[in-house]
Design a protein around this nucleic acid. Structure first.
Lengths: 340, 340
DNA sequence: AACGTTTCCGGTAACGATCTCGGAAATTAA
DNA sequence: TTAATTTCCGAGATCGTTACCGGAAACGTT
């Protein structure tokens, strides 16, 4: 029973040959005797040898590992992305070092430091809600580490990005609300510095203006820490003299909170007030009433981001590209039917 | 603009001192002049130096990295565990290499191979549904790699484990059904080789017998690939001459499927048929009717497993321990009220 | 003044794998 | 038989870091 793990040196000693030969045999190189090669492979299997990727990495300066930072993997949207990333990575023999920022800028910095120290070959990051300064990302670029941002991206850095058509998705949602006779449409927004929240706001405003409706500032409410604020924000909207007849929400959790509050106020959904969310969380199809929402292809987003990154690592593509995935309005029961 | 990253050698060259001194200075060792140390630290910051953990790992034979394998991180129960693991690990400066088996035995083997090659300091594994043979886990032990199993554990290996009180949780659930006047209680089970499914069956049978009810084999139905089978199994139960008046389900997704089918049959929940799930998925509180379920502390399970593993890695505890976390019956609206 | 101590620093050998180089043995060609 | 070539293998350097060892100053002690 040895202490550490088996090395090529152990194999070499057992067979009384040099480690160079063992290395060549294991890597399947040409200039090694067929018989020697067979003996090496057999011995490797017998000793249960596994190559030491740490040593390989040090030598080759490549770790075959990519790093991910997401805000919180407990959010289904992110776990779905992480799943997509991991599957693609594993298919091309890349490992995945996984971190969570917990929506904290400081933790994001720490995560990044750890991943850089681990010499990941590339990075996939979805920014924390607190992150405004992207100095740390620029430092990543200075080190020539390939970087792909997804979902929570930043416009202040020139790198590859994957996002969804937020503006267009919001536009489609709000247009649908207008088409189903809603006129006072509120927007339950996210934090003011969150890019995706702002892009969805653009779509919201655009749809209103396109229909000749003047946006009412009273109807745009921001909420920060999702659940708690969302309930308060909804209550605030319902207490207006001139109540909204529809609610467009920055994401599904907010929409679900809104539904609970509206139910408590004994208002009918969608007759009194229509609701549309964003994301298509699995919960949304199961709640009562089932939530109409703008679906984002989360799994595909992860796969796409991973592919972009790996292409960059392998040097297939040096340019930074932004891929925008399509969103789709999924009609359920929190919205009225379109009149034919 | 250099090619690779900055090394202590670069710092040494710039300051015209030896790499040994730089190393000592960076590690804050005693025998280095205060002024020299200051200059080294300043230069390190100026050059944006990050220690190469790969080299450190090779030298020290420790990677400060643990590996996780879960079946599917998109399942909330697992993402919650993974989140708990990652938080604990990060707090003690451990990295997390993340893999998914996708419920495939072969993929689990591949994952394990990759993690061993990466020389993780320890492993956290929740077995795939396909896994029956645990030879691969024994090989891990032969290599003296600390291993902790969680949730999907196996009785055939002596190692640290974290699970929940499955049997007791099932017992409490079924007892509650009996206490609320249910008599023909069906069990919608998982695959036959799944330990947790069998343990829950034990609790189910125990509760029945304790109440003097003879278990009816007709009322125990197994389903494999979760969603599709669950619907079929439920339909099968509803087509019996002597229908069940309650359904105990191996997990929440199965219960939720069952609810949909039962609704379609125009049966009233819980008046005609009561339902209890297992896990307490976040969805369960939001669906209509809200699902009564046996809650498992998933986040805590992750944290506990990570702590056990890290204690083992650091050599605080060499013995293999099994921690069983408590389950809690969460009463909602798919069950009748208890008569006082 | 001669000695021991302390302070600080550099050389060198590892960790495990790979790659380059060169050389010995075996084979072929002349 | 000798020369040329092929086949196969080993020595050594290297990746970035740390640990061990030893040495040169600078200091204090008698």
């Amino acid at each position: 029973m040895e202490k550490g793990q088996v090395t090529i040196r152990d194999i070499a000693l057992k067979l009384n040959i040099s480690i160079s030969t063992v290395s060549r045999a294991l890597r399947g190189m040409a200039d090694v005797n067929a018989d020697t090669k067979k003996r090496v492979l057999e011995m490797a299997r017998e000793l249960n040898y596994e190559p030491n990727q740490i040593a390989q990495s040090l030598r080759s300066n490549r770790t075959n590992t990519i790093g991910i930072i997401v805000p919180d993997v407990q959010v289904h949207f992110f776990s779905s992305i992480v799943s997509g990333i991991q599957k693609v990575a594993s298919k091309v023999n890349y490992n995945v070092l996984f971190c969570q920022s917990g929506e904290s800028y400081q933790t994001e910095l720490n995560n990044l430091k750890a991943l850089i120290a681990s010499r990941v070959d590339g990075l996939l990051i979805s920014l924390s809600r607190e992150t405004e300064d992207i100095e740390h990302l620029l430092r990543v670029q200075q080190k020539n580490i390939p970087l792909v941002l997804f979902d929570r991206i930043s416009d202040d850095i020139d790198t590859s990005k994957v996002d969804v058509s937020d503006t267009d998705g919001a536009f489609k949602a709000v247009k649908y609300l207008i088409d189903t006779e809603c006129r006072r449409i509120a927007y339950l927004a996210g934090p003011k510095n969150l890019t995706i929240s702002n892009k969805r706001m653009e779509g919201y405003l655009h749809a209103l203006r396109a229909a000749g409706i003047t946006p009412d500032e009273e109807l745009i409410v921001h909420c920060n820490s999702l659940k708690e604020d969302a309930a308060g924000a909804t209550a605030q909207l319902l207490s207006l003299n001139n109540k909204p007849d529809a609610l467009f929400c920055v994401n599904d959790p907010v929409a679900i909170q809104a539904i609970q509050v509206i139910k408590k106020h004994n208002l009918k959904i969608p007759e009194d007030i229509s609701i549309i969310g964003f994301t298509d969380d699995p919960v949304s199809a199961l709640i009562e009433p089932a939530l109409t929402t703008v679906a984002q292809p989360s799994h595909e987003m992860g796969q796409c981001a991973a592919k972009l990154l790996i292409d960059q690592i392998k040097g297939y593509d040096g340019t930074s590209r932004t891929v925008t995935l399509d969103t789709k309005l999924v009609l359920r029961n929190t919205t009225k039917l379109l009149n034919p």
